[in-house]
């Protein structure tokens, strides 16, 4: 058996693909394609987390992997890397990202990281409106500067703050944290989940927008004025 340039493992989150950190990108993708093709029926439909280690991967390079996976019915879902270039590429493509060996810092496109080092949870900052079909996933908190339109979703291990209108679906505390909260300047989500609880917006179209916060009290989601 010859040496593979990629390792494919099954995890509870789908497939984990680890690639050689030094080999030519083209060889890596060719090997990946060949490996999947060998067992297409086994892999089809899976979502893939790509671990590229410290290798800086450009957006077009990541795009080629995404395309080759999609052609085979797999979805590129997340990217793990210690390289900022890679993380930036992945975020530009709306992929979930994480840095395996250290905590995920606040990732922002153009805001400096907060200087006062609080003992905070890692998070993700999205500085635009999420339109229908978009999905943002993060193990930490998620802050959206913009609207979350109907048909878009946010899934966070921690809290979700929407500095705009929330009309899509949100799952906060997705890993079971029932202390997670969801805040929005205008709270009319399609569906709201915190940990294992689900709430659906009442059909009250002509409401006045106001900042609200959803929390779990007595095992159900309640919405309170956010101050």
């Amino acid at each position: 058996m010859h040496d593979h340039l990629v390792a494919i493992k099954g995890t509870k989150d789908g497939l984990l693909v680890q690639v050689s950190p030094t080999e030519e990108w083209n060889s890596v993708t060719a090997d990946l394609a060949a490996r999947i093709d060998q067992q297409l029926s086994f892999y089809a439909g899976a979502r893939v987390t790509l671990d590229v280690g410290s290798r800086p991967v450009r957006k077009d390079e990541l795009g080629s992997v995404k395309a080759l996976l999609e052609r085979r019915g797999l979805a590129l879902w997340a990217v793990m890397s210690e390289s900022k270039t890679t993380i930036d590429s992945a975020q530009a493509m709306d992929l979930r990202t994480s840095q395996p060996k250290s905590a995920v810092p606040i990732q922002s496109t153009d805001m400096p990281a907060p200087s006062s080092q609080e003992d905070g949870t890692p998070g993700m900052l999205v500085k635009r409106t999420l339109r229908s079909g978009r999905s943002v996933k993060s193990p930490g908190h998620v802050v959206i500067f913009g609207d979350v339109n109907a048909g878009a979703e946010v899934i966070a291990g921690g809290d979700v703050f929407v500095w705009g209108r929330l009309r899509g679906s949100v799952h906060a505390g997705a890993n079971g944290d029932s202390g997670a909260v969801v805040c929005a300047l205008d709270m009319t989500p399609t569906q709201l989940r915190i940990a294992g609880q689900i709430a659906i917006s009442p059909v009250d179209k002509r409401h006045k927008p106001k900042p609200e916060m959803a929390v779990i009290r007595n095992n159900r989601i309640v919405v309170e004025t956010w101050e």
Binding site: R131, S132, N149
Partner: peptide, 13 residues
């Protein structure tokens, strides 16, 4: 309108 929103998102992306 929902599908138009999706298209606008793709154009922006």
């Amino acid at each position: 309108v929902r599908d138009a929103d999706r298209i606008i998102g793709l154009l922006e992306a």
